[in-house]
Every structure is written in structure tokens, then in C-alpha cells.
Design a protein around this nucleic acid. Structure first.
Ligand SMILES: [Zn+2]
Ligand SMILES: [Zn+2]
Length: 625
DNA sequence: CCTCAAGGCCAT
DNA sequence: ATGGCCTTGAGG
């Protein structure tokens, strides 16, 4: 299979970006914020200052002893080697709220009412939960007076029982969903499948999964409306396609196309206006509805990926192992990135979760997408394919390694976000509007530095990274930090919270108000808008944890493409090419010659003398080799 | 202990 | 019949 056609040059979509946080009030004025006091030079902080934790800050650290082995850290800038061996996962010190809490905050998939959690396998409200339970308890045959396509929403849900139940079923509600998904009781016997028994005759066909499809700015208001139109997604149902590679690739390509199509995510500020033009529309705008949240907010442990489940069912592929779906997706993801899949890479491949846990422990076996089962391979890696070069092997190992770590990093970010959301207040638009340009920029740098610290730590623990000469390490970091940042931040979008996507970083969220408060004429204004587009585009790719972790690794491990030739070499890797294009080969009408790295350099240079600007920024974007 | 979902209860 | 709220029990 080909991994998709070459991407079209991204149309420039400049829009807004946002970034900022909002929750807890800005850190006390004590000092200026002790963000990462250390730099690359000084190396990443060996331990996070407690004061930071006290302010609610969350720091990315690696779980202690869980999961992955700690390699001896060879990377050291100015400090003792063993310094990072003892990193432990500071669980926010107080409360880490499980991602499961997300489900309760979402809307009922059936009627859109406020949900109270997952019921019968689907996020539903109390009403729909009870309705479905009753329907299963008493086998009553409903019937529809209309065309069997009644709309089901909060107010109409009681107008037609038939259609309501139909919708429940089509969304996958089943009586023993929780048991079926979790533990395959089929201990010894044959491939007993937990029959997802449903007490209803008519077979129901599940609708195809839907990708985020920005309803491009339309006449009405050009608001960001993510509609889910079935027609967007076409799936070939050829029976002889056990793998999902083509579908996933197609999904990715579609996500990219969707992001391209959207050329005016946020309207420009009216001349002379300092307000938020969308303020009014926000109240009336249609809330984004994302049937399938690929970014993992509703995933937990080895829960099936909804998308994969759909694909499998569409093909009548039976899954006998609860982990099988995860593997299929991982396998597909690898193909997308151009790396062959080898079961040898994953010691727990094909094993049940229970067996995996028995063998490797809960810490390793648990995890999203089954990624907890991945173990880095020792070097040298045996070639999976005879044609592999040594470089292939090294990168293969590196990516495998980063996959695990990258996934953890993403998970950390999401946990951190979930914690942040709890205390989130409304964006303080007024504050942003009155901030000086320098204050605003300083604020933004401090926020991003939080994540940078986590990324740097992540990189330093990668074996591949450790094997690169020090000066190259710094160069790698300098060129990859922002791409990695955006990849991570793309996961932090809360689509359903507001009519408009909003990023959450650090203690606050990056609100549209803030972005809009920064004039586009400023370089940072352009940067913010650009970043916002990039993040949305990446988000539209619908990456799973596995895919994102893999992408993190490939981005980090690849040198910056300097020549067009190498650029073309990546054409069969749609996502990678996509990222490269965003950062290094900006093309398209609006994008022009905009380059993230250049802007950062200029901005940092301009504000060099100001103490409010993080040292890390100076370190990263000012020093030239 | 904790979380979470299933199912019961009962005023509407 | 509905759905908000509670208890129950499994799992951790
Ligand atoms: Zn509902
Ligand atoms: Zn009907």
C-alpha cells in the first residue's frame, strides 16, 4: 500500500493561535516566576522546585521505576551524570484526576444532554442510560411513526422510542459493554468472544466514523463549526483487507485536507477594534461535536479505539484478543511512518493484557493504546528486513524508544490538562488586552517553557539522543522544540468545552481572546496565529497516542531536511512531510516566507535584555552556532 | 479505602 | 414511561 499521495502544499491559513493559560491566577509576583531557571546549559532542572508545585504547576517527569528502564544518562551539559536517574513522577502532589473524568464532562452521544459518564459502553446521560436499560429489561418492540430517522436530541428524545433505541444501538450501546471490553473472561477456552448481547432484533449498522471536518467558513458567520458529515469519509469495504493501513492513511490525509480547507478559522479583527469579534457569536454558535475523539480523552487502558472497532466491524473481522485492536492500530501507524512492523519489537504482542501484566507488571502493561507493552530494543537491533541499513536500525530503535516515552509524555500532558481544567476560569480577556506587548510575550514564553522542560527531559532520556554529539543535541532541540510542542499541544484541545477550540497550557489556557489581543502586525501575533493553525491541523489528523508518540520520535530523530531532495524522500510519510512542510518548507499564499524559527529568533533578540523573558528562550533561539 | 458503572427507587 | 438520584458491587 502506498502511504498516501504526496501532500499538497499547505495553503496558508493564518489564523489565530492561542496559547495561554487561564486557570490559576498568574503566579504571585514574588519573583517573576521561576520558570525553568536552568537552561540547556545548566541542563534541565534536576528537580522541580517545590514552590512551583505549590502554585499548581505541573511538571513532566518520568514515572519512577514504572514502565521504562532508565538508561544511564550520558547527556549532561554542566552537571553530574547521575542527576537524572532518580526522576520520579510527581503526581501533582495532590490529586491527579483520572482521565476518565473527561467522560462526565462531555455530552450524551445519543441526545446531547449532559452526560453522567459511560453507560453500556457509550457516553450518555442518565435518561438515555435508563432508557436503554429499560429497553433491555423488557423486550418491547418499538415502532416509528415517521421514517425511522427521527432526530434525537435533548428535547425530541422522547418523541420516538424506536429511533432513540436505534441510535443507542448504532452508537454501540450494549448490555454488557463494560464487561466485554474489559476482561475477556475467556480464560482457557477457545476464542470465546464476549457476545455483545443486545436485546433487539434489527441488525444495526454502525455509521462510519467521522473525522473532524471543518465546515469551512460559510456565509453565515464563518465560525469554526466542526460538523460530522458521513459523506466525508469513504471507506472501501473490500473484504480482503485485514489491515487498516489504507484507512488510517486515508483518515490522516483527510484530516490534513480538512485542515487545509479551512482558511479562515478566526476572522480578522475589525480595524481599530481591540475586542473580540466573536464574542457574541460564541453564545449562539454551534458547539463542536466530535463523535470520535482520537486524542484519547475517552480512552482508558486497553479500551478499544472506537475508530478501529468501527473498521473491524465493517469488515467482519473478529478480534479474539482484547489487545489485538491496539496492535492493529500500532501496526498501521508504523506503516504510515514508513517503518515495518515486527512483533519482536513488542514482547507482549499477542498476549492478553492479563498475561502481559503477569509477565511485565502492571506499570508496563497498562497504558493507552497498549503502548505500555512496548519495550525499547537493545542495540544493536536485528534487522527486520535484510535491506535495512545501519541507519535504519538505529532509527528504528530510536523510534521504538521514543514511541514509548513520547506516549508517556503525551499522557502526562493530558493528565496535567485535566487537572488544569478543574480550576479553569473564564479567560481573562481584559487582562490580555491591557498587557503590554512585552508582558504578553514574556507570559507566553513562560507558559511554553513549562512544556519545553518536559520535552527536553523526554529527549535526554532517549537513547538515540544520547548517542548524538552534544552540539548536535542542542541543535536538534533548537530545531525540534516547537514542532514537538505543537504536537503535544494539539492533544490539549478541548473541542466540546467551547464553541471554539481552545488550548490549555500551564496554569492557564490559551484563549482566543489572548490571541486576538495580539495584533497580527506583530511578529508574535503572526506566530500565534500560525501556531494555532498548525495545532488545529495536527489535531485534525486524528492521531492516537501511539501515532503521536511515533511521530514525536520520527521528528526528533530526523535531521532537519536541508534539501528538497530529502524532502521528497519523505513523501511517503504523510504526517512527517506535513510537519516538515509546516516548519521548514512553508509554502502557500498566506504563509509566504513565514518561518517559525526566524520569528522566534527575532522576538527573542528584541526582548533580549528584558528579564521577563525566559532564559531558556534566549538559550534556544538566540545562540547561533 | 478509591472509582466507576449497573441497576433500583420513586417523584414527576 | 421518564430521569434524577441512590445503593450496590466489582475492581483496583
Ligand atoms: Zn441522552
Ligand atoms: Zn422515529
Amino acid at each position: 500500500m502506498e502511504s498516501g499521495q504526496p501532500l499538497q502544499p499547505l495553503p496558508a491559513q493564518s489564523q489565530t493561535d492561542k496559547q495561554e493559560s487561564k486557570a490559576p491566577p498568574p503566579p504571585p509576583p514574588h519573583h517573576q516566576q521561576q520558570q525553568p531557571p536552568q537552561l540547556l546549559h545548566l541542563q534541565v532542572p534536576q528537580h522541580i522546585p517545590h514552590s512551583a508545585a505549590a502554585t499548581g504547576g505541573y511538571h513532566f517527569m518520568y514515572p519512577e521505576g514504572v514502565g521504562f528502564p532508565h538508561h544511564p544518562i550520558k547527556l549532561e551539559y554542566h552537571s553530574p551524570p547521575g542527576a537524572y536517574n532518580e526522576v520520579t513522577l510527581s503526581r501533582g502532589d495532590e490529586n491527579i484526576h483520572p482521565p476518565a473524568a473527561f467522560a462526565a464532562a462531555q455530552c450524551c452521544r445519543v441526545c446531547g444532554d449532559k452526560s453522567s459518564g459511560v453507560h453500556y459502553g457509550v457516553i450518555t446521560c442518565e435518561g438515555c442510560k435508563g432508557f436503554f436499560r429499560r429497553s433491555q429489561q423488557t423486550a418491547t418492540a418499538f415502532q416509528c411513526n415517521q421514517k425511522q430517522e427521527c432526530e434525537i436530541n435533548r428535547t425530541t428524545r422522547n418523541r420516538c422510542q424506536y429511533c432513540r433505541l436505534q441510535k443507542c444501538l448504532s452508537l454501540g450501546m450494549s448490555r454488557d459493554a463494560s464487561k466485554g471490553v474489559r476482561s475477556p473472561k475467556n480464560g482457557g477456552g477457545g476464542g470465546k468472544k464476549n457476545p455483545q448481547t443486545v436485546l433487539v432484533p434489527s441488525a444495526t449498522v454502525r455509521p462510519p466514523p467521522q473525522l473532524l471536518t471543518p465546515a469551512s467558513s460559510t456565509t453565515d458567520g464563518s465560525i469554526l463549526v466542526y460538523s460530522s458529515s458521513d459523506s466525508e469519509r469513504t471507506l472501501s469495504n473490500s473484504p480482503d483487507e485485514p489491515l487498516l493501513d489504507d484507512d488510517i492513511t486515508a483518515a490522516v490525509m483527510q484530516g490534513l485536507a480538512a485542515s487545509e480547507a479551512d482558511t479562515s478559522i478566526i476572522p480578522a479583527l475589525p480595524p481599530g477594534s481591540s475586542g473580540t469579534p466573536l464574542k457574541e457569536e460564541r453564545d449562539t454558535a454551534t458547539h463542536a461535536t466530535v463523535p470520535y475523539r482520537p486524542c484519547g480523552f475517552i480512552h482508558e487502558d486497553d479500551e478499544y479505539e472506537p475508530y478501529v472497532v468501527e473498521q473491524l466491524r465493517a469488515r467482519n473481522i473478529k478480534v479474539t484478543n482484547e489487545l489485538e485492536e491496539s496492535w492493529l492500530r500500532i501496526r498501521s501507524g508504523m506503516l504510515i511512518y514508513g517503518y515495518p512492523f515486527s512483533p519482536a519489537m513488542f514482547p507482549t504482542y499477542g498476549k492478553s493484557r492479563k498475561a502481559a501484566r503477569a509477565e511485565y507488571g502492571a506499570g508496563l502493561a497498562d497504558g493507552y493504546d497498549g503502548l505500555g507493552n512496548i519495550q525499547p530494543l537493545p542495540l544493536p537491533v536485528e534487522p527486520v528486513d535484510p535491506s535495512w541499513t545501519k541507519d535504519d536500525l538505529l532509527k528504528h530503535e530510536a523510534i521504538n524508544d521514543s514511541w514509548l516515552r513520547g506516549t508517556r509524555l503525551v499522557m502526562e500532558l493530558e493528565k496535567w490538562c485535566s487537572e488544569t481544567f478543574r480550576h479553569a476560569n473564564a479567560p481573562n480577556a481584559e487582562k490580555y488586552k491591557t498587557m503590554s506587548r512585552l508582558d504578553m510575550w514574556g507570559h507566553m514564553t513562560r507558559l511554553t517553557c513549562r512544556v519545553f522542560t518536559g520535552i527536553i527531559e523526554f529527549c535526554k532520556h532517549m537513547r538515540y539522543f544520547q548517542q548524538v554529539p552534544q552540539h548536535e543535541q542542542i541543535a536538534l532541540l533548537k530545531s525540534k522544540l516547537f514542532p514537538l510542542l505543537f504536537l503535544l499541544v494539539a492533544r490539549a484541545i478541548k473541542w466540546e468545552e467551547e464553541p471554539f477550540p481552545s488550548l490549555r497550557l500551564a496554569d492557564e489556557s490559551i484563549s482566543r481572546e489572548m490571541i486576538e489581543a495580539v495584533p497580527e502586525e506583530y511578529e508574535e501575533g503572526k506566530l500565534l496565529r500560525e501556531a494555532y493553525n498548525i495545532v488545529l491541523a495536527i489535531h485534525a489528523c486524528a492521531l492516537s497516542h501511539a501515532e503521536l508518540g511515533l511521530l514525536l520520535g520520527t521528528i526528533l530523530c530526523d535531521g532537519e531536511p536541508k534539501e528538497q531532495a530529502s524532502f521528497h524522500h519523505f513523501q511517503q510519510w504523510p504526517l512527517k512531510q506535513f510537519v516538515y512542510e509546516l516548519f521548514w518548507y512553508p509554502r502557500g499564499p498566506r504563509r509566504g516566507s513565514f518561518k517559525v524559527a526566524e520569528v522566534l529568533h527575532n522576538l527573542t533578540a528584541e526582548s533580549q535584555q528584558d528579564p521577563a523573558i525566559s532564559e531558556l528562550y534566549r538559550e534556544l533561539f538566540l545562540m547561533d552556532d
